[in-house]
Design a protein around this nucleic acid. Structure first.
Lengths: 218, 218
DNA sequence: CTTATTTTTTAGTCAAGGCTAAAAAATAAT
DNA sequence: ATTATTTTTTAGCCTTGACTAAAAAATAAG
C-alpha cells in the first residue's frame, strides 16, 4: 500500500513522462507537486527503493512497469469518479477535478469494479480524456489540436489539453463542450488566431485557446 | 480543516459519548482508536486547544458544540456513502463499512448535498442507523432491543447495535435484514435465549444475538 | 488512613514528509 | 579550458502522530 504522498508523486511523474520524453527531472517533479526540489529528491529516492521508478543521481527518474501500473490505476479511479460526479450527481465539468483528486485515493478494487459497471464502463471522462481499462490499457484516439486545423476545416471537440477552471469556464461561456462541432472560418498565420463558428455564433479566438482544445476530424 | 487523524478521534469520541454518560476517559478513546493512552492524551490536548472538546486532566474529554457539529458531519457522510454503496453499487451491508470509513473524509459540501439528493435524502443507512440532516439533527426513533421483547410479542428489525461483519453475516444466513418481521415464540428467563420465527423458519437464538438487534414494535 | 493498583500524563524517540542552507555535479559562457 | 550559473543533492531541522518508559494522580484495598 502506498501513502497519499507517494501516490501523488507517482501520478505526477506519470503525467510528466507522457509529455516530455526520457527521464523526468527532479525539478520538474518538484514544480508539478508544488514543493521544493529537496523534497522531491527524498521522495524519488524512496520510490526508487520500492522499485516504483528508476532513478539516477542528477539524471532524473523514470517509472518502472510497476510504477506505471500504480499510476494508471490512480488515473482510472480519478476519471471514473469524474464521470460519476458529472453524469450522476450533475456537477459541471469544471468543478470535479478537486473532488476527484481526493476520491482517486480510496482503496478498494471491488469499489472500482462496481463503480465502473454502474457508470456503464465509460471510455472517456468528462474532459474527453481516455479512461484506462482494468488492465491499464488506454483507448487510442487520433485527436489533433484545434490550432492544427486550417480555414474551412472543421472538427468535433473531444477534449482539452489545459483543464484549469478558467479555461473550462471560457469554453462554457462560448458553449463549447465535448461533442461540439467547430468550424474554422478564418486563420491568421501571423499570430495563429482564428475566427470560428460554434452553433449559430461566430467569434474570434486566440492561438492560446486553439492550441488547448482537442478535436477529431473524420 | 482537520487532519485525517483528528477527524477519526472526533468521530470516536462522539460515538463513545453516545453510550456512556459524562466525560469520555482517555483510556476509552485510546482503546476505541486502537492506540496507546499516551497518544490519545496528546491528541485530546491538541483538540482542546482547537476548542473541539473540553478536557480536564485526569477527568476526561467532552465534545463542545463545535466538536459535535464536526462529528455529525462525518457521521452524515459515512452513512450517506453506505447508502450509495448498497443502493447504487449493489454492495452487501456487511461489506460497506471499511470503504465508507475512507469516503467519509472526502471534503466537499457540494458533493454531500448532491449525493444526498441523488440518493433521495435517505433517513437511515443500510444498518438502520439514522442519517443526520444537514443541520446535524437525527431522526428520533423509539426502537428497542429484541432481547427486551417477551413471548408472543413481535417487532420489525430496524437496525443493529453491533455491526461486525460476523454478526451481519449471521443475520444474513438467518434471512434477517432491515424490515424483517420477527415473532418471539419463546424466551428462557435463565439465560435470555429465545426461540423466534422469521418468515417460515423457526429457530433458537442466544441472548447475545437478541441484544444486538433493534426492533420497532408499534 | 495508609498502601497497592489502576489510570493518566509527561518526557523522550521515531518515521514520514516537508523545509532551508550549503555543497556538489552538470551545463553554459567566456 | 576555465569560470559562472543552474540544477540537484546532502545535511540538518521542524511538525504530526505514533511509541515506550517513567512519573504522578486517582481509585481501591487492607
Amino acid at each position: 500500500m502506498y501513502s497519499l504522498a507517494e501516490e501523488n508523486y507517482i501520478k505526477a511523474i506519470f503525467h510528466l513522462q507522457q509529455t516530455k520524453t526520457g527521464a523526468v527531472s527532479t525539478n520538474a517533479i518538484a514544480e508539478s507537486m508544488d514543493t521544493k526540489a529537496s523534497s522531491a529528491t527524498d521522495m524519488v529516492q524512496k520510490l526508487a527503493d520500492k522499485k516504483v521508478l528508476s532513478y539516477i543521481k542528477y539524471k532524473g527518474s523514470k517509472l518502472t512497469e510497476k510504477g506505471k501500473k500504480i499510476a494508471t490505476r490512480i488515473v482510472r479511479k480519478h476519471r471514473l469518479w469524474e464521470v460519476f460526479l458529472v453524469d450522476k450527481l450533475g456537477f459541471h465539468w469544471d468543478e470535479v477535478h478537486e473532488i476527484a483528486e481526493q476520491l482517486e485515493h480510496i482503496h478498494s478494487n471491488e469499489l472500482i469494479k462496481r463503480l465502473d459497471a454502474f457508470l456503464g464502463s465509460p471510455a472517456f471522462d468528462p474532459h474527453g480524456d481516455p479512461i484506462p481499462d482494468e488492465h491499464g490499457n488506454f483507448m487510442k484516439t487520433e485527436k489533433k489540436l484545434l490550432s492544427q486545423l486550417n480555414k474551412s476545416q472543421y472538427g468535433v471537440c473531444v477534449g482539452v489539453k489545459e483543464s484549469s477552471a478558467e479555461y473550462l469556464q471560457y469554453l462554457d461561456k462560448k458553449k463549447i463542450s465535448i461533442g461540439t462541432k467547430i468550424n474554422v472560418l478564418g486563420k491568421e498565420f501571423f499570430d495563429g488566431s482564428m475566427v470560428i463558428q460554434v452553433g449559430r455564433d461566430q467569434f474570434f479566438i486566440s492561438k492560446q485557446i486553439a492550441e488547448n482544445l482537442y478535436v477529431q476530424t473524420n
